[in-house]
Every structure is written in structure tokens, then in C-alpha cells.
Amino acid sequence: MASSAYSDFDVIAQEERVRDEIAASSELVSDPLPTSVLLDEYKENKDAFRDKLKDVTSKYDSFRRVRGDGNCFYRAFGFALLQQILHRGTEEQARKLYQQAVASKALLVAQGYTEYTIEDFYDSYVEVIALATGFPKPPAAYDYSTGIPVPVQQDANSEPPKQLPWPLTAQERALRESNLLAIFRDDPVASAVVYYLRLLTAGHFKTNAEFFQGFIEDGLTVSEFCAREVEVMARECEQVHIVALSAALDVPVRVVYTDSSDSTSQATEINFQEEGTAAPTVSLLYRPGHYDILYAR
């Protein structure tokens, strides 16, 4: 506002500087680290927080840091999901995840999103899903390279792209994991994948508006809530977002909560979408305001 000493644009510029500083000092997704690193990080803490971290290290031996830029939940979820499907998924799970990814754009368009505004994000998402499942990337319907959408002519005689035999070989999995990590560390592709996960979350809120309305405060409608709290990059998530995304993809998510409240010395685990069938469980570590990826012992 013009009436205060700092304009909104000053605030935005300041926020951008903070984000740039965070970006310069941390990777979008780190290499795996032993969970004991967390104990060292908080060795000054003598409270229940450290006890809970000890509890975490007893059950999980490693973790990956995810950049704290407001997108950490989506980024952590996305990378952990693809890694789980690549290394531990069954063929049936891979097919389910792949098929729902391919079908998702039409569902979002049916909910009112404009196709050409979500197309790029969809393409990036399908690309990483194809990479993690070994299923072929579906041919593009339009060529947008010039900015002018031109329907892509499919050659009727050409063989459809082949699916790799499942399970993938260890060598194939290792190669694909390093490619996935490269994509997740590379903006703007990484942002596109994160943003598509936001859209899938918003889409689930909207298709189940009646259910979710009860969780939304401030008198907002589900659409208004999505516009403010889901579809905006860098907006942090709450539990209800986790409920929505894990249900949208039918992926079980376990969040291990740590904080300094001393009612218990054990980290609290909450399972979202317990019966999820599209992937093995994705485990995330929560420290107040932030999510990282956890790997069980």
C-alpha cells in the first residue's frame, strides 16, 4: 500500500531475495544423508524435539533434504513417490499411476482449467511418470513448439512405443533414478512437476468439494481456497492438502511429526490414504514448517 513505508512490491522483492538466498544455499532435492545428521544439527536442543529425532533415527536410517521454499511437501512427495514406484512398485501399481497421469489432464480441463495453460505442466508430469514406470510417454496431441498449436499427425503404420518389461533391471532402475533426480533439481521442469501436483491436489478438492468444505475456514468456497492456498506456487500446505493429494493419486503417505511439545518423547506418525493402492508408502519427515523425505531402515 502506498500509505505504508513499504509497498507490496518491496515486500515481494524482499521475499524474492530470501528465496534466492535459500536457492543459492540448498539444492531442490539433496543426496541421501544419514538421519544421524539431524541429531548433530540439534545437539544443543535438550528438549523433547531431540528425543523425537532420536526416535526417528531408530526407525529411519537416511533422508533427503528438500528445499524450504514453500513447495517442499509437493516436491518431497513427488520425488519420493517416483522413487518408491521405481524401486518397489509392482507392475499393477505402475500401470495405475501411469494411467491416472495420462487421464488427469482431461479431468482438470473438465473442472474448468484451460488446456493450454496446464498442458506444459502435464507434459512434464507425464514425462517423470513415464521415466519412473518404464511405460512409454504418450505421443503429444499438439505441437506447441512454435506457440501455435498444431495437431500432431500420428503415423498409422508406426508401431506404438513399447513398454519396458517389468520389473526393470537394477541397472535400468539406477539410471532412471539418476535421471529423475536430475529433473527434480532442474528448474523450470522441476517447478512444472511441482505445479502439476498442486493442480492435481486442487482438482481433488474441487471434485470432492462437499467433503472438503467442512475443513475450510474463513468462509471460503473450495474454489476460492484452491485459488489462494493450492494453485499458488510457494504457498505452504496443511494436513488437508496431504489428505487431498494422497487421495487424488491413491498413494499412501506416512508423515513422521517432530516438534518440541513434551507430551511424548516419540515422533508421531500419521498415515494418510492408508489403503492406497497406486504405490508403496511414501514417508516424509515433518519438522515445524518443513517436509523432507525419509527412508526406513
Binding site: D20, A24, F121, D123, Y144, S145, D187, P188, V189, A192
Partner: peptide
């Protein structure tokens, strides 16, 4: 379509004008 290519440096990303 979002193709992977050389990532811009953070300095380049920040100069929005």
C-alpha cells in the same frame, strides 16, 4: 512442452525486470 535444458543461474532468475 517443458524440455530439460541448461538451468538458469539464480542470479538470472531473480532479475525479474
Amino acid at each position: 512442452m517443458f524440455r530439460r535444458k541448461q538451468a538458469p543461474t539464480s542470479a538470472a532468475v531473480s532479475s525479474s525486470s
